[in-house]
Design a protein around this nucleic acid. Sequence first.
RNA 1: GCGGCUGUGGUCCAGCCUGGUUAGGACUCAAGCUUCCCAAGCUUGAUGCCCGGGUUCGAAUCCCGGCAGCCGCACCA
Length: 495
Amino acid sequence: MVMTTREELESVCKRRGFIWQSSEIYGGEAGFYDYGHLGARLKDSWEEQWKDFFLSLDQNYHLVYTPNILPYRVLESSGHVEHFSDVLIKCNRCGNSFRGDHLVEDVTGESAEWMGKDEIKNKVEELNISCPDCKGDLGDAEDFNMMFEVDIGPKGERKGFLRPETAQGTYMNFPREYRALRRNMPFGLATVGPAFRNEISPRQGVYRMREFQQAELQIFFIPSIHDALFEERLEEVAYTEIPVMRTGDDMKKMISVDEIKDLPAYYIYHLSKIYEFYKDIMEIEGDIRLRELSSEERAFYNKIHFDVEINMKSLGGWKEVAGLHYRSDHDLSQHQEGSNKKMSVPADGERKVPHVIELSFGVDRNIWALLDLGYRTGDRDWLTIPDKLAPYQVAVFPLVRKDGLLEKSEEVFNKLNTKFRTFWDVSGSIGKRYARQDEIGTPYCVTVDYDTMEEDSVTIREIKTTEQIRVSITQLEEILQKLTEKEKLFDDYMG
RNA sequence: GCGGCUGUGGUCCAGCCUGGUUAGGACUCAAGCUUCCCAAGCUUGAUGCCCGGGUUCGAAUCCCGGCAGCCGCACCA
């Protein structure tokens, strides 16, 4: 049976060492989470696998790191200063707050998103708008910015923000990397790091946090020139079926890439590769869909936008964990205008500003998805998680703690620990030790027993079936290597 | 941010209404015994009333404020 409630899952996470609220001993602060000793290893492995997978798609996809703090002007150019803040108006009578632009739009029927604080206040007075909830008088308009503002310099003389997304740092590096990469296009710049949003009310655990981790890959290209290249690569994914839900569909269906040929090749190619990552690396198949967002749902600069959604019981259904956004030349054009630096490159006999396709992953949400889909309860509580991602890959036990088995098991542990993330446990009954590893998703348990002392062999128990095989210690490392690398199945060694 | 409910060892909960022995249970954890393969048993032990203020001879319990969590509303370029 699959674990259903967030309470149960959060309880295990706290008890065993995965994830819990940050600054807990002082009462905590909403929207901030710590990763414990198991959670940190899981997250770390996920990020490693993510980098390995996406950077190997093309030898011209690379990793960069940029600061968490960005100067005011950067986010002014990107549009975040304007679009990431809302004007809120509070009712003098009932105290409820409303978005000022929505109040105005409801009356005028025209977009008021461009309006500033004073304009909205004047418009509300002019149109005589009262509180939608209680009809009371509305108070002053106030700016609310979702970005954390920081003061830079000893006297705080310059304003900056904690970045609301990692992408802007990457975009600003386009001209430098364009030259450093010897003008080879297309190229991709990936980054993994924190981003910050001052959410009004963070809820649903790690799903909406004020500080969270992003893993993003921005690909820079010129559609008219590089379309052909991606068209060729479609052959790579031609036989893949992907679970797609187009706008207007009410459920997903498995389709081949031929059936979404209305989308550009660079888009289809990366969409398929994203699904491949979920299928092969995260081993998620049934509870995933690639959902296309309608023009109302997506931001105006996203010309094509699919979200990766995973069906998570603990969060009540389909939840976004990643997105693929075709952002056209919006980002580089904005920075070209704001910085007065040339972002265009020679193409087709003129200068063109490259387009961007962005692969954006919420790391914490993906970690949560692994835990949500992986936990099973019933006869035993166990976590099913890919071997390469598991916090510990192997555990080593002595069957009993006497007659030299304890010492022998320590030898085996020391040998394996250099190759795998290995755990050694000697306390409690053997059954209890298996159960402990079940709960944290350790795929293989190696047990030293009395036969070990005579013939130098041990048993390996697989978490999925609890079946065991007996192997000689000389072959142990090699067999575990093949199992964790998925070169062999456990079944192959049975019988 | 607004309203309702909630906050007790590591986890989950009882106690609170009606203030008063040493705050109780289950699981967990540690040490030891036992143990030839799936949370067994025995012994011993560790850890707790979210924070701050008030009322009172006395507060886990009543009152006020804060913080956090859940649900609903709003928010989520």
